[in-house]
Amino acid sequence: MTPLLVAVGAALGAPLRYLVDRAVQARHDTVFPWGTLIVNIAGCALLGFLAALPAGKGAMALAGTGFCGALTTYSTFGYETLRLAEEGARMFALFNAAASIAAGLAAAYCGLALAEALTA
């Protein structure tokens, strides 16, 4: 049952990631991968929130592993950062790496704090 829940969550998260990424990138005329940064930060916040809830294994498989796992994308982050560096946009590459890590951790912490505040 757990693999099915992960698959259902991923089937929802992956298309949402693609659609949000395209919508955000369409509004920015830059080589910087804003869309990927936004979905990764949002996914970190949601996963932090979910981790602090008293959810069962099924809910975490569906929403945490499946949905958030497909919504966020480390491989695309890595590819886009490397592409920026190879194309000479090294400052953008450094900013992307630093911002993704710092903002992702901050977002996860904020999601966790929000869930704890709501369940206290």
Rank of each mutant, 00 (worst) to 15 (best):
A106V: 14
D21N: 13
E80S: 03
L5G: 07
N96R: 02
V24A: 11
G78Y: 09
G88R: 06
F95W: 08
T76K: 02
W34E: 00
L47T: 06
V31I: 00
A98Y: 02
A42Q: 08
A7I: 05
V20T: 10
G9A: 04
N96Y: 11
D29F: 12
V20A: 09
E87Y: 00
Q25C: 05
L114G: 05
F67N: 01
R27E: 09
H28L: 13
A51T: 13
V6E: 02
A97F: 13
G58A: 15
E86Y: 11
E80D: 11
T36Y: 00
G69V: 01
F32E: 03
V6S: 03
L5Q: 11
A102S: 15
A59T: 15
A115H: 08
A52K: 02
T36M: 02
A55Q: 12
E116Q: 14
A89K: 04
G58E: 15
C68R: 00
G64A: 06
L62Q: 03
H28P: 03
G111I: 06
R27M: 12
A89D: 09
G78E: 14
A55S: 12
A99L: 14
L114S: 11
V39R: 01
A85R: 03
P33M: 02
V24D: 09
F92Y: 06
A117E: 01
A11T: 08
F92K: 00
A7C: 10
Y109V: 13
L19A: 15
E116C: 11
V39E: 07
T2M: 13
A117G: 12
K57C: 00
E80P: 08
A45N: 00
A70M: 06
L94N: 02
S75H: 05
F32Y: 13
L47H: 01
F67T: 02
L16A: 11
R27S: 14
L118Q: 13
L84W: 01
L12G: 04
A89P: 01
A120P: 09
G9S: 08
F95R: 04
L50H: 06
A93H: 01
T72I: 04
G58Q: 14
L105E: 03
V39S: 08
I41P: 02
N40I: 06
A10L: 07
N40G: 09
L53M: 14
A97L: 15
A59R: 11
P3T: 09
A103G: 07
T36N: 07
A59I: 15
T73A: 07
L37D: 06
A52N: 02
A14G: 12
V31Q: 12
T65N: 12
T2W: 10
P3I: 12
D21R: 06
R83F: 12
K57T: 07
L50E: 03
A106W: 10
T73I: 05
V24R: 10
S75M: 08
A102Y: 05
L118M: 15
A120V: 11
D29M: 07
L50S: 08
Y109L: 14
Y109W: 11
A120T: 10
A59G: 01
G69Q: 07
S75F: 09
A55Y: 14
E87K: 14
W34H: 13
A107I: 11
L47M: 14
A10C: 10
C110Q: 08
R17N: 05
I38G: 00
P3Y: 13
F95Q: 01
T36R: 00
Y109C: 10
F77V: 11
S75E: 05
A120S: 13
